[in-house]
Structures are given as structure tokens and as C-alpha cells.
Design a protein around this nucleic acid. Structure first.
Lengths: 336, 336
DNA sequence: GCTGGCACTCACCGGCAACGAGTGCCAACC
DNA sequence: GGTTGGCACTCGTTGCCGGTGAGTGCCAGC
């Protein structure tokens, strides 16, 4: 019982099934792959693989399809990740060229990834716990109403409308702006709440000071907060029946960033390695028929991830290579 | 041949079909609605309605379902829009209370609308052709690299990374910022491009000035650009089969704002009226099995729309009232 | 440990009959 | 003329049946 051949059989089953979406039988297997043995032998191997829980048959007289565990083993025994084609590499370089701010770059990345893999793509914003405030701007829009804009040294911008609770003249507003900038400039977003106490203002501006401080604290929290962008939801429809018609819950989950972030966060993370979560390995019930291929990206400490999500019946090697390539590419860009 | 009764029959068919999703027959009709005549009479009316193209039967021995034209007539003859329940009114007031900036408010509105109607909701950003620049901020992030932030008096904020093409000291940067603000403050976003010519700078800062001017022009264009937010795509999955499994193209369209904006723009628009576009009346092929219920909102000149999108088999009265109520509500808020 | 052979299982397909919901039409009625 | 009860007809749905074939499990032999 050549153990090595069984691995080859499993691999062949996964590949054929992914390609055709039909249960694959012993005969078809010996025809398409040069296994050098007869179909009866393959049948024995298949029986063994089924006993191990790696493959299953939908009904008695049908071929076999991989189980989640089968995919798992297939992925684990994947020694080499198929390299991208030259055209794909060029596409990546083309889409991500030029000076881009964070928003624009992640937007492009997520579309690129979804286009390359024909799946749903997710890209998490680089966590900004290390980001520091660069500038605070206060713009009066209406009497007693101000727009507070917070800018970090990572180039992130957040704004919020503030009800001052009093009317403030232009000069006083300028004074407040200077006061806040003096104390907060260079302060980490994680330390903003504490630093706000040091900001002082004339007694008659106390209400305005308090309202602005409150807003800035919330904006800083917003910067810290994890976020992500997604693209390619339409690809789910293609997968259709395969997901057991459970598209609804998936689309719902997509609309709740928190849920998707939790999904990403629950995955194992080995730096510079692509990790794969298959079917029921996923933390959430609604994702039991999907797989997630994820990788972290960015440079030391900037803990962010990107991922591709699709049905468990997915071309893992290609998807994994795309995820890895894109992750590496944008890591390089971010490093500059 | 009471013409008025035929209208009642059509209405009854639409209501029953929307409720049950099954072809409705003459017998069921006389049972559930007090029409005061026998099923044979109804059959005659149905034959007439079918001749007019308002209803159709999926196959010979089945009941009738409304055609797109049938829905059209049903909607046109709807004299009163069913008022919202008190609970719904309260929900609207609760969700949209408090001081909110534009982003936050539209975000909440779209979720609210999708929740109320159990359909996909779209809310267009108020067009900002009248918006004027309030402030421009230049923040240096790295040597020779600056984040340009543009703030309008409507509270919209746009930013962009700028490659200066030269390194600029802190004082020079402040000088540039003042120069730009001096010339651009209060200028309409539509007139920014022209006004930029008046901004001058020392000869050694020419490259930086040009780069920044270019970025500001693009940011102003971005502000002018129409945008929208969406929510409730998951509700499409529920509609499922009904859309003829054409969910894919719909989801694809959702990812392209331009497409959705075109869809909205192509709809008739009578101020303060809810307009409905049914099935093939929609401008786009992919939306041939859906209906769009839209209304404009905002105050004089601020041409923005919100809409609800769902399968043609939709509860039009309820949807229309929800759309109208939400549109009116946020118009009032925006007016302040 | 591999192979050929063989009996077995079972989804799938086409045909067929029974069923029933719903229709169209017609003669009679108010 | 509009309305009504009656009736024949259509046709999708359901269930049943036998044939077909892909694919399997097992066994005896090499």
C-alpha cells in the first residue's frame, strides 16, 4: 500500500473535482492521470481514503468528492505553490503603480485580488495603533457647529460634526485649534484620550473645549478601529448551488464589517505564510461551506491581513499564490 | 362590464400574488375578497385583463400573475399610499436623531430604508455643485510627500497623497497652504480649476505648487462627483429564484457605482413624488426583473435621490410609503 | 500488493396513468 | 347586457415502473 500513491490519488481527485464539479470515479482517474496502476487498485486506495475521512461519495453508485478534511490534507501536502503567470505579475504591477494614499491603494488591491481569483476579496486596513496625530483641523460650518478633522501621520483622515453647545468666534476657534494641536501633535492614537486632559482653554470656551475633546477622542478610536474593504461579491452568485443556497447569510455577514473582521482574526497567522481555513474550520456558522485563504501583509508590527473567500471547492494552489503575491507586493510598497 | 370592478380584480390579483408568490385563480379570488360576484364573472374579467396585457398565466391550467404592465397600472391607480405604522415612524425618528455629518447620516438612512422595506436600498449623496471650499490643509507625511485635504462648507472631506517633486520645508509648506486658502476659500467646487491659476508661489516652489494645484483640482472633481451608498444586498438572496437566478449581474452592478447612478438618473423625477420603474422600464438589461422605487430628497436644487430596489413582485404600497417617509424626513433634517 | 472479473447498488431518464386546479365557453337567467 | 351555474378540456404535478449505466465492493488468482 504505497502511501505516496494515495496522496497522488487524493490530489488527482481534488484537482478533477475542482475542475469539473462532478464526483470523480476510479476509471476516469486512471484515464486522465498516469498513475500506472489499474482502476481496481485505485478503488482500493479510494476505499482507504474514504476510511480516513478524506473523501466521500454523495450516493452509493457515484464517484468520490473530497471532504473538508480531504481539502485540508491536500493543502497541507502542497509542497510548492504554483507561481503566477507573467501576465498576472504584470497586472499586479500595473494596477498598483504610482503614488497612492491608503484608501486608494487598498481599494485597488481588493479589486485586483478579486479579479485574479474570481472570488470575494477582503483587505483589512493596516492597524493604526502606532499611528500618531499629525494635525487637527476645526472648520466652522454653521454657528455653534464645527467639523473636526483628524489627520494621522499614516495619512488617514477622519472627520466628525461637532455640536459646540455655544457659539465661538473665528479667533477663538483658531485658538482652540492651536491649543489642541500643541498638545496632541505626535501623540499616538492610543494615547489621545489621556493627552486630551492637558488641553486648556479660557473658561468661557469650556463647553466648546469639552465637545471638541469628546469628538477627537472618538475620532482617534475610529482610526484605531479595524476596518476592511471588500470586492467581488458577485462571484458568489456564480458559485451558487454549491454553497447550499446559503448566499443570504454570507451577504449579510459582508455588510457587517465586525463579523468579517472576526472571521479574519480567528484564523491562524504565521508571518509570511498563506493560511487556509476550510469549511467548518471557520469560526462562523454561515461560512461552513466556504474557505478563506489569508495572509498578513505590511511591515513589522503593522498587523493587517488580506484574504480571499470562496466555496470550499476552490482552486487552492492558484488562489494561494495570488494571495501570497499580492500580499508581498503591497508589503513592499508600504515599506517605502 | 364594470370597469371599476376590473380594477378591483387587478388589485386583488396583485395583492394576493405578492403575498403568496403563487398564481391566483378565480375561485381563490372570490373567496378572499368580497367582490360580490361569482367566479365565472371573475373569469370573464380576467380574460379581459389578460387581453389588455395586464395579467398572464404561466401555463394553461394555472392561475394568473400580474405582468409588468399589470404592476404598472396597479401602481398608477394607487390613489392613496398606505401610511406607515406608528412604530415605523418612531424607528425613523430614533435612527436619524442627533447631530450627524453627511456620511453618518446617509449611512444610517440607507440601513434604515433597507430594514424597513426588506429590500436593497440606495441613497445618493447630495450633489455638491453648490458646495464651496472651506479649507485646504497640507500635511507633510514624508520628505517631498504631502497629504492634501480639502474641506467643503457642506462638511465633505476629501484627501489625496501628493508627490511634490521636491522637498519643501515646514515654513514653505505653511506659505503654500496660506496661498491656496487665500485664493480658494469660498470658491465653488465647480470653479476651483479656474481659481487655481491665481495662486502664486516663489519660483523655487513652482514644482510643489503645480503638484498641489493638480491634486486640489482632482479633489474638487471628486467632491462634485455623484456617489451613493447601498445596503441590504442580502435581501436579494431571499428573492432568489424569482429574479430568474440573475443575482450575479445585479451584484456586479452594485459594485459599480456609476452603473447604479445611471440607473437612478434614468428614472423620471417629479419633485416630492415617489416614482416607480418596473421591470423592463429600467434602463439596464440586468434590472429587467427588478423594480426601483425612488424619490428625490433635499432642499431646493440639491438634486439627490434615494431608492429601493427589489423584485418586480414587491409590495409597492408599503415600499412607496417607506421611501416617501424617509425622503421627507431627511429633507427636513438637511434643511436645518 | 496488484489485477481482472463480476455481482450489486442506485441515480437518472422516459413513459404512463391518475389527479386536480384552473380555465373557456355556453345556455339560461335576471 | 351583465351575471351565473355547469361542463368539458388543458396541462402541470405526482407517483410508479422498468431499463440503463456509472461506479463500487469484493474475491480469487497472479
Amino acid at each position: 500500500m504505497s502511501d505516496e500513491r494515495r496522496t497522488r490519488v487524493l490530489r488527482a481527485i481534488v484537482e478533477d473535482y475542482v475542475a469539473t464539479n462532478e464526483p470523480v470515479g476510479s476509471k476516469a482517474l486512471v484515464d486522465k492521470h498516469e498513475l500506472g496502476v489499474s482502476s481496481a487498485t485505485i478503488r482500493n486506495d479510494m476505499a482507504a481514503l474514504e476510511a480516513q475521512g478524506l473523501i466521500a461519495q454523495p450516493h452509493t453508485s457515484a464517484g468520490r468528492i473530497p471532504t473538508h478534511m480531504g481539502y485540508r490534507v491536500f493543502v497541507d501536502r502542497l509542497d510548492e505553490i504554483k507561481p503566477l503567470t507573467a501576465a498576472e505579475r504584470r497586472a499586479i504591477a500595473r494596477v498598483l503603480s504610482g503614488p497612492l494614499d491608503v484608501d486608494e491603494m487598498l481599494e485597488r488591491t481588493v479589486r485586483l485580488l478579486s479579479g485574479l481569483t474570481h472570488q470575494v476579496a477582503l483587505v483589512q486596513y493596516p492597524t493604526a495603533t502606532k499611528a500618531a496625530l499629525r494635525h487637527i483641523e476645526l472648520v466652522d460650518l454653521a454657528p455653534g457647529r464645527v467639523l473636526a478633522v483628524l489627520i494621522t501621520d499614516s495619512g488617514q483622515v477622519e472627520q466628525r460634526l461637532v455640536d459646540l453647545g455655544q457659539t465661538v468666534g473665528e479667533d477663538d476657534l483658531a485658538g482652540l485649534r492651536d491649543a489642541f494641536n500643541r498638545e496632541l501633535r505626535g501623540v499616538r492614537v492610543t494615547a489621545v484620550a489621556a493627552a486630551l486632559a492637558a488641553v486648556t482653554a479660557a473658561p468661557e470656551l469650556a463647553a466648546a473645549r469639552a465637545a471638541i475633546a469628546q469628538a477627537i477622542a472618538e475620532l482617534a478610536a475610529l482610526v484605531r478601529q479595524e476596518r476592511l474593504v471588500m470586492a467581488g461579491a458577485a462571484n458568489l452568485a456564480r458559485a451558487g448551488r454549491e454553497l447550499g443556497e446559503h448566499i443570504g447569510p454570507l451577504l449579510e455577514a459582508f455588510e457587517e464589517q465586525v463579523v468579517m473582521l472576526r472571521l479574519l482574526a480567528s484564523m491562524a497567522d504565521e508571518p509570511d505564510r498563506v493560511s487556509v481555513s476550510i469549511g467548518s474550520e471557520n469560526a462562523l456558522e454561515s461560512f461552513a461551506t466556504t474557505s478563506v485563504v489569508a495572509s498578513s501583509y505590511g511591515v513589522d508590527g503593522t498587523e493587517a491581513r488580506l484574504a480571499v473567500l470562496g466555496p470550499t471547492r476552490m482552486d487552492y494552489p492558484t488562489t494561494m499564490s495570488a494571495v501570497r503575491a499580492v500580499a508581498r507586493y503591497i508589503s513592499v510598497i508600504l515599506a517605502e
